[in-house]
């Protein structure tokens, strides 16, 4: 999953405490599955180790939740690379795709590019399926259609989401 990249994206606008990060993540992406603290700090320490975040300041007191994290230049590059690369078209992609779109919007990048990239990737798979379908027998056709409709549903959902978030961003920014 992409909790790490999501954290990086959330940190890009301004440094945050670990606890802040968890709350922001849960609000936007957690739905009914909030992150465990363990997951939060494991991810953060992995990011620290890879040099993608750094500790900005430490407030007096005990515990890791007192540390304030900031994104590094390497971290920004990592987010960019992540956003630019399409996900492998797969079923039940929505978590990752959604996260990507939100992060892109939050960090001031357009959701359209993500969408276009992802669509191209989806289309590549859909073309394969279409080709198989046109050459194949009825069973092939049915199976391929199943895949095609699901992929199409993904894209349509994504497109709708992006359009709505675009609207939202405009509202927020105006």
């Amino acid at each position: 999953m992409s909790i790490g990249q999501a954290f990086l994206g959330l940190l890009e606008s301004h440094p945050r405490h670990g606890y802040d990060l968890k709350r922001a993540y849960d609000e936007r992406f957690g739905q009914d599955r909030p992150l465990h603290y363990g997951q939060v700090y494991a991810t953060l320490s992995r990011l620290l180790k890879n040099g993608l975040v750094e500790v900005d300041s430490i407030e007096p007191g005990e515990g890791p939740e007192r540390k304030c994290y900031a994104i590094t230049a390497a971290g920004v590059t990592d987010v960019e690379r992540w956003l630019a690369n399409p996900e492998k078209p797969d079923l039940y992609l929505q978590n990752t795709l959604y996260t990507k779109v939100v992060i892109a919007l939050l960090t001031g990048r357009g959701a359209a590019e993500i969408l276009d990239t992802q669509r191209a990737e989806h289309l590549r798979l859909m073309r394969d399926l279409t080709r198989r379908k046109t050459d194949g027998d009825l069973a092939d056709q049915l199976i391929c259609d199943y895949g095609l409709f699901h992929l199409e549903a993904d894209l349509r959902w994504l497109e709708l989401t992006a359009a709505r978030l675009d609207e939202l961003t405009r509202e927020v920014r105006s």
Binding site: L123, T130, L151, R156
Partner: peptide
């Protein structure tokens, strides 16, 4: 429609 576009060899997007 993506499903129709899937019959293509290549696509471009107008926005």
């Amino acid at each position: 429609e993506t499903r129709v576009a899937a019959y293509s060899d290549r696509e471009i997007v107008v926005r």
